[in-house]
Design a binder for these strands. Sequence first.
DNA 1: ATAGTTTTCTAGCAGCGCTAGGACTGATAT
DNA 2: ATATCAGTCCTAGCGCTGCTAGAAAACTAT
Lengths: 201, 201
Amino acid sequence: MTSDARIRSMSIQNRRERERAEREQLIVTAARELAETEGWDAVTTRRLAAEIEYSQPVLYSHFKGKDAIMAAVAVQGFAEMAAELRAARTAAEGTRESLAAVAEAYTSFGRRRPALYDAMFTHRVDLPFATQEAPQALWAAFGELSQAVEPIAAAGDDPGILTETFWAGLHGLVTLTRSTRLPEEAHEERLRLLIGRFVTP
Amino acid sequence: MTSDARIRSMSIQNRRERERAEREQLIVTAARELAETEGWDAVTTRRLAAEIEYSQPVLYSHFKGKDAIMAAVAVQGFAEMAAELRAARTAAEGTRESLAAVAEAYTSFGRRRPALYDAMFTHRVDLPFATQEAPQALWAAFGELSQAVEPIAAAGDDPGILTETFWAGLHGLVTLTRSTRLPEEAHEERLRLLIGRFVTP
DNA sequence: ATAGTTTTCTAGCAGCGCTAGGACTGATAT
DNA sequence: ATATCAGTCCTAGCGCTGCTAGAAAACTAT
């Protein structure tokens, strides 16, 4: 192989990797949009392949399987949620107001984007969560929650545990409401009550 | 048809109905056991049919489909949970102790019987929940929770809403822990914290 | 142009929930 | 006792799923 050829093949390889990365994003966004508009049941590998205008097996050259695609969508969701939580938190003033704003943003996210929320928090997915290998976007989202919760920690409270517990409350409200186990109606009231119980006066 | 024949055919019909009801129970318990030992993924209509030693279509002469079988398992689960919550509540003394006992019983149930819990609280199932048509066993379970929660209601709190919110907290803890979103480890601490925030001193 | 590598597609597997239509069983009437 | 009829149950199969082996095509390098 000549020197010229080596350089040429390098840039060709670059282009290929770039195109490959683009296609991977295409898959993830297509999966996400399909899930959000028609639900995860509609996201079959055949349908998804048709959507991106490639054949089925290409999906498997990017992801190990359907679950891995869902996991990728989830990670994208974490980033988005982190941004929304951050916006809500920084727009509010005062510890109680910040907490309320973040809590409202959280439940609003879950109810506005149910399919995305499912991929992130209810679907069985082999993403590392409470470990160091967890995706950065996940930590970012949890971090926003933490920053809103920590100021309301009482004397002996572990701030991390407190955040987790408050999170569990929000998560319970979102999932039970969405599955019609809880009536939609009194949602605001329940949220207010939860916040009231966590804010120590 | 003679009078004798009419009486005879009546009792035959009775026996048939009895046997049918027995077989229906057989299906529900088989589904439940299979789900608890191998998870709901293992509960296929074929496998279930083999388990009860009938062919696949008999399942559909009892239930509209697989979801309806899961719903029947869920209802059975509600009755069991109600009994466990009641036992915990009546064994404890004092409002805080009762609440703690019921909360502990609830999360323990969810962690001991994950498949059952899923059918009851996470799987999409078309059971009526917060309406009058909800199965009696469901009301019983919720009632146990209510009785433990109501004593800790503050002045302006709606007891029903308060129970729902506390329930959401428990549900969040159970589901997030089970899906490894929360580490198993600090579960007791989180539960203690949740109770502490809801009990007004 | 040819050889070799890499990418992409066609075709198919095993399993899923569910169902139509025929076979079988058993009670009734002659 | 036997023929009729009703009801029960099973065999076989449909269209779908996630996933994969091996052929075909596209592209690169000599």
